[in-house]
Amino acid sequence: MVGLGVVALGLTQCQPAPSIDPGETLAVYGQRVISGDTVEVLPLVGDQPQIQQVRLIGVEVPEWEQEPWGDAAQRWLRGAVEGQTLTLEWDVQRDEAGDDRQWAYVWRGSTLINGAIVTAGHGLAQPQFPNLRHRLILQRSQETARLRAVGLWDPDYPLRETPTEFRQRQQRQSP
């Protein structure tokens, strides 16, 4: 079972990440949480480390407008990574198409934050081919949250629309 370690990050500006092969890791400092699935980090190595935006691989988190779930996910992530020493782990695909963010697994010690936010009921496991290295951990995390009926899985106040469905509906309603 994935631990429920808590961590949070934050930064003010982002620069391209150094070239790292899939499966490699990088020690970083959690600066600031941007959203429930995106953090800003500062590499702990290098002569002139640059702030980087990192999106959690394999996790779909409610938008902040999806109250109360989006705000709860962001608060949870802030408590889990801000001010913490973390490790980024890349998979096959590193960059999101058309975005300055990079995809990574975020570890705090032996806790996979990507899985822990799902276990806590603040996100959904969302496999993102070809980045499937930890998909089984994420799937087990979601099953644990569902069986525990926490967060998005609370039967008294469940999430009725996935973040993807929410964004699609918002786009259809925009003029």
Rank of each mutant, 00 (worst) to 15 (best):
A73T: 06
Q74S: 13
Q74K: 12
W76F: 09
R78Q: 11
R78P: 00
G79M: 09
G79N: 13
G79Y: 07
G79A: 14
A80N: 05
A80M: 09
A80P: 04
V81Y: 05
E82P: 06
E82I: 14
E82A: 15
G83C: 08
Q84E: 15
Q84M: 14
Q84K: 15
Q84C: 12
T85W: 08
L86P: 03
L86N: 06
T87E: 15
T87L: 14
L88S: 00
E89D: 03
W90F: 15
D91Y: 14
D91N: 13
Q93P: 00
Q93N: 00
R94F: 07
D95F: 13
D95Q: 15
E96A: 15
E96K: 14
E96R: 14
A97V: 08
A97E: 06
A97S: 06
A97C: 01
G98K: 05
G98N: 13
D100N: 14
R101L: 14
Q102I: 15
Q102D: 06
W103R: 13
A104D: 05
A104S: 13
A104C: 13
R108N: 14
G109D: 10
G109Y: 12
G109K: 05
S110P: 05
T111I: 03
T111R: 00
T111Y: 02
I113H: 02
N114W: 09
N114R: 04
G115K: 00
A116T: 02
I117S: 01
I117P: 00
I117N: 02
V118H: 02
V118W: 02
T119L: 04
T119N: 01
G121M: 07
G121E: 06
H122P: 04
G123V: 08
G123S: 09
L124D: 04
A125Y: 09
Q126K: 10
P127V: 08
P127L: 09
Q128R: 03
F129V: 12
F129K: 06
L132S: 01
L132C: 01
L132T: 06
L132A: 03
L132Q: 02
L132K: 00
R133S: 13
R133H: 09
H134S: 02
L136C: 04
Q139L: 09
R140W: 07
R140T: 02
S141A: 15
S141M: 07
Q142V: 11
T144W: 13
R146K: 07
R146M: 11
R146A: 14
L147F: 11
L147K: 12
L147C: 06
G151C: 04
L152M: 11
W153L: 10
W153M: 08
W153I: 12
D154C: 04
P155H: 10
P155E: 14
D156A: 15
Y157C: 09
Y157S: 12
L159H: 01
R160S: 02
R160L: 11
R160M: 03
R160A: 04
E161M: 11
T162V: 01
T162G: 02
P163W: 11
T164G: 04
E165F: 06
E165Y: 02
E165Q: 12
F166Q: 00
F166Y: 10
R167E: 05
R167K: 06
R167H: 08
Q168Y: 07
Q168M: 11
R169N: 10
R169G: 08
Q170C: 06
